[in-house]
């Protein structure tokens, strides 16, 4: 009995996660026949049962949102996809063990840069996630990661930089020259898990000093 190699039907089954929005993605055959359908199951590590993901049974797209099903941050999960093509050939592949805490990527913060005459203020908006507490309250990254810090950086015409690390979301760079261009960045850093967001960047110019005019 010769078992047919169907590995080409299905590759790279993995979670793509940002701020705990957990999307399962995969690739099919390069010239994937339009009649190939995919079905998704998921399970908690250490439990016996695979559960079918409603809404991702016999679908033709190559992604499935498992955010709700994998929203317990202290759990570890697996997901698997079964592909069946028009000729009835099938293949099943599983993800690595998925840990929302360790594996989610951190999105750049949303920031407002406010230029003044001799200072620039940076206000980070609350970094909300899709995770809700038991009381339904939407959690921010600060609620989830106790060691979260914001890295505020201001570069002064390629000659030097001002760098500050804070737990608070608001920071003001003082002692700046009026009417001058600055390049600001803010990053979210979670040292314990070696996580660092991509930087939010703003190009901003201090206001002219009109006190003596």
């Amino acid at each position: 009995h010769i078992t047919e190699d169907t590995s080409d039907l299905l590759q790279h089954v993995k979670f793509q996660s940002s701020n705990f929005e957990n999307i399962l993605t995969w690739d099919g055959k390069l010239e994937s026949a339009p009649d190939t359908v995919y079905s998704v199951q998921y399970k908690t590590y250490g439990e016996g049962e695979w559960l079918e993901k409603e809404g991702c049974q016999r679908i033709t797209r190559k992604s499935c949102n498992l955010t709700v099903e994998t929203s317990n941050l202290t759990e570890l999960y697996y997901a698997r996809v079964t592909a069946i093509d028009g000729a009835g050939r099938s293949a099943t592949k599983m993800t690595n063990r998925f840990s929302p805490l360790q594996d989610t990527n951190i999105k750049p913060p949303d920031v407002t840069c406010i230029p003044k005459v001799r200072s620039i203020q940076m206000n980070v908006h609350p970094p909300y996630t899709v995770i809700r507490a038991r009381n339904g309250h939407q959690l921010t990254l600060e609620n989830i990661f106790q060691d979260l810090r914001y890295h505020f950086n201001l570069r002064i015409n390629h000659t030097y930089q001002m760098h500050f690390e804070r737990k608070q979301r608001k920071f003001e760079f003082f002692g700046l020259t009026p009417d001058t261009e600055f390049h600001g960045t803010v990053m979210i850093c979670i040292p314990n898990l070696f996580k660092e967001s991509a930087p939010y960047e703003c190009q901003v110019k201090t206001l002219p000093d009109r006190t003596w005019t």
């Binding site: 399970k43 590590y45 250490g46 439990e47 016996g48 697996y78 690595n96 063990r97 360790q102 070696f194």
Partner: peptide, 17 residues
């Protein structure tokens, strides 16, 4: 974290923790 995926991939008994 440098060996996590490689080691966990060898653990095929995922019903037990």
């Amino acid at each position: 974290s440098e060996i996590r995926d490689s080691v966990q991939a060898k653990d095929e008994i995922i019903d037990i923790r």
